[in-house]
Simulated scan of single mutants.
Amino acid sequence: MNELTEIYKRIEYLRNNGVKMKEIADWVDMAPSVLSALYSSVLPSYLELLKTKSPENALDDALALVNNVSKKRLLGNLGEIKERLFNMEPVLEAPVSGNPFLHLLEKEMHQSVEEAYNYSGTYLSYSLSSSTDSLKIEPYIICTSENSDYVKVGMINAYHSVHWGSGIINNHQNSYLMFNERELPQFAMVTIYLQLPHYEYPNMLKGLYLCLDYNHNPIARRIVMVKQSDSTDEQAFMEMEGKLIPKTELTPEQELYYNYTCQEGDYIKTCTVPSPKLDESDLEREKKMLKI
């Protein structure tokens, strides 16, 4: 069973060094969907379950999370899979000129296309309205771009504005959805950080919504995204609507999302305090102003 830990760490090493999941799957003679399930769901869960269970029981429980990985076939091929993985080396790329961070973003966006099918579809998000005591519900779509060169994400906000952006899916553990929330040429970046669960096709994602308010002060709040459909039809998505629902009008189901996203501590905001100099007293004044 020790091979499972070594296999997981080797795949992680290859992925972190730019090797695509499909290339790894072809190298070890495994279907990409099976390798994806193994890497994103089975092995992380197995390693976590080892803390409280025997290797045999931990593997059984981890395999129960997916339906396309055969225990018999997996255990029968562990030695060969491990050998092939350790014979595979990433191709070192030549140093790039310009901004290395932008090159990294572009590279990650392109590689994320391979992982997008696990999360593609339309969603409804639930978060706190920053202007009223209401639950904010907004449609999202996650799909691949027309040329399949990046993960395309769209959002219709509660005020019916449509924003398009891009997503990065990193190591089946977290994802970033990024938009510009203002009309061009203004730029106000929205970043939604999602914690990806150890399931092959999750129906719910959760994380933090980071953006600017109308006065360009930074705010952060919880967000839950619940999958509505596997469809990536943009026309159907455009027919969806975002809305604000007052607390008094929530259904029992919506109240669950409200209680998770709209309580004290689920919303963080800072503001700029007019001051001839910035010192410790301004910090106290800011906290008082935010209570108003």
Rank of each mutant, 00 (worst) to 15 (best):
L4W: 04
I7A: 01
E12D: 14
Y13V: 01
N16D: 14
V19S: 05
K20E: 09
K20C: 01
M21L: 15
E23W: 06
D26I: 00
W27L: 04
W27K: 12
D29H: 13
D29K: 15
P32L: 01
S33R: 15
S36T: 13
L38N: 03
L38D: 03
S41D: 15
L43M: 07
P44A: 02
P44F: 04
Y46P: 01
E48Q: 13
L49I: 07
L50D: 09
K51M: 07
K51T: 09
P55E: 09
E56W: 06
E56Q: 13
N57R: 15
N57S: 13
A58L: 08
L59Q: 06
N67L: 03
N68C: 07
V69T: 02
S70W: 10
L75P: 00
G76L: 04
G76C: 04
N77P: 01
L78S: 00
L78P: 04
G79V: 08
I81N: 04
E83K: 14
R84D: 02
R84A: 11
L85D: 07
F86D: 06
N87W: 05
N87H: 12
M88S: 00
L92E: 15
G98A: 11
L102V: 09
L104R: 13
L105R: 09
L105P: 04
E106Q: 14
M109P: 03
H110C: 00
H110Q: 11
V113L: 02
Y117C: 01
Y119R: 09
S120C: 11
G121S: 07
G121Y: 08
L124K: 15
S127G: 06
L128F: 11
S130Y: 14
S131F: 10
T132R: 14
Y140Q: 02
Y140L: 10
I142P: 00
C143P: 06
T144E: 08
E146D: 11
D149T: 15
D149H: 12
Y150N: 09
Y150K: 12
H163A: 12
G165T: 05
Q173V: 05
F179K: 06
R182L: 15
E183V: 14
L184P: 09
Q186W: 10
Y193F: 12
L196H: 02
Y201E: 12
Y201K: 14
L208V: 15
C211N: 14
L212S: 07
L212Q: 10
D213M: 06
Y214R: 10
P218A: 07
A220T: 10
A220I: 08
R221A: 02
I223W: 03
V226S: 11
Q228Y: 01
Q228G: 11
D230C: 10
Q235H: 08
Q235S: 12
A236Y: 09
M240K: 11
P246A: 11
K247N: 09
T248N: 11
E253K: 11
Q254T: 00
Q254F: 05
N259T: 07
Y260A: 07
Y260N: 06
C262N: 07
E264M: 05
Y267R: 06
Y267C: 04
I268V: 15
P274F: 00
P274G: 00
P276G: 04
L278C: 15
L278V: 13
D279L: 04
E280T: 09
E284F: 12
K288V: 02
M289I: 13
K291C: 02
I292W: 08
